[in-house]
Amino acid sequence: MESWTQRIFLTLSGGSLLALLSLPALAADDNKPLIEPDVRPQHVDEALIDTENFELGAFAGVLNIEDFGSSFVWGGRLGYNLSESFFMEANIGFAEGGETSFETLAGNVQLLSDDDREYTYYNVNFGYRVLPGEAFIGESYAFNTNFYLVAGAGSTDFAGDNRFTWNVGMGYQILLTDSLALNFSAREHMYQIDVLGEDKTAFNTELSTGLSVFF
Results as ranks from 00 to 15, higher is better:
residue 53 N to C: 12
residue 29 D to L: 11
residue 37 P to S: 00
residue 2 E to I: 12
residue 4 W to V: 14
residue 37 P to D: 12
residue 16 S to F: 14
residue 77 R to E: 10
residue 79 G to H: 09
residue 120 T to K: 11
residue 40 R to W: 13
residue 95 A to S: 11
residue 175 L to F: 05
residue 181 A to C: 10
residue 101 S to G: 07
residue 200 K to S: 11
residue 137 I to Q: 03
residue 11 T to S: 15
residue 180 L to E: 02
residue 125 N to H: 03
residue 45 D to Q: 13
residue 26 L to Q: 10
residue 104 T to L: 11
residue 187 R to I: 05
residue 115 D to S: 13
residue 177 T to R: 07
residue 111 L to Y: 13
residue 9 F to W: 15
residue 68 F to P: 00
residue 60 A to Q: 04
residue 195 V to Y: 01
residue 157 D to H: 08
residue 16 S to L: 15
residue 182 L to D: 01
residue 31 N to A: 14
residue 72 F to V: 07
residue 29 D to K: 11
residue 166 W to R: 03
residue 86 F to R: 05
residue 81 N to T: 06
residue 199 D to Q: 14
residue 96 E to F: 08
residue 50 D to L: 14
residue 65 I to F: 02
residue 67 D to R: 04
residue 33 P to S: 09
residue 171 G to S: 04
residue 32 K to H: 02
residue 76 G to Y: 08
residue 97 G to T: 01
residue 211 L to R: 02
residue 44 V to T: 13
residue 35 I to P: 01
residue 104 T to F: 04
residue 4 W to Y: 14
residue 191 Y to G: 03
residue 136 F to Y: 15
residue 90 A to R: 03
residue 66 E to P: 06
residue 156 T to E: 06
residue 159 A to M: 04
residue 200 K to H: 11
residue 11 T to K: 15
residue 26 L to W: 02
residue 45 D to C: 05
residue 193 I to F: 08
residue 173 Q to D: 10
residue 16 S to I: 12
residue 176 L to G: 04
residue 191 Y to M: 04
residue 145 T to C: 03
residue 34 L to T: 06
residue 204 N to I: 06
residue 47 A to E: 06
residue 138 G to D: 05
residue 161 D to L: 02
residue 104 T to K: 15
residue 167 N to Y: 03
residue 33 P to V: 01
residue 16 S to M: 15
residue 7 R to Y: 15
residue 26 L to Y: 08
residue 189 H to C: 10
residue 107 G to Y: 00
residue 90 A to M: 09
residue 200 K to M: 09
residue 29 D to M: 09
residue 151 A to Q: 05
residue 63 L to H: 06
residue 94 F to L: 08
residue 46 E to F: 12
residue 101 S to R: 13
residue 129 R to T: 07
residue 16 S to N: 14
residue 66 E to G: 00
residue 32 K to Q: 12
residue 53 N to M: 13
residue 187 R to F: 00
residue 48 L to E: 14
residue 188 E to R: 07
residue 47 A to C: 02
residue 187 R to N: 05
residue 135 A to W: 13
residue 99 E to V: 04
residue 202 A to E: 00
residue 51 T to L: 08
residue 203 F to C: 07
residue 174 I to E: 04
residue 153 A to G: 14
residue 170 M to E: 10
residue 70 S to N: 10
residue 13 S to K: 12
residue 162 N to P: 00
residue 126 F to N: 02
residue 44 V to Q: 10
residue 99 E to F: 04
residue 34 L to M: 08
residue 61 G to K: 05
residue 205 T to D: 07
residue 161 D to N: 10
residue 143 F to I: 04
residue 135 A to G: 01
residue 212 S to M: 06
residue 193 I to L: 08
residue 101 S to L: 11
residue 8 I to Q: 13
residue 13 S to L: 11
residue 130 V to R: 08
residue 99 E to K: 01
residue 139 E to K: 15
residue 141 Y to V: 08
residue 149 L to M: 08
residue 214 F to R: 09
residue 123 N to P: 05
residue 105 L to G: 06
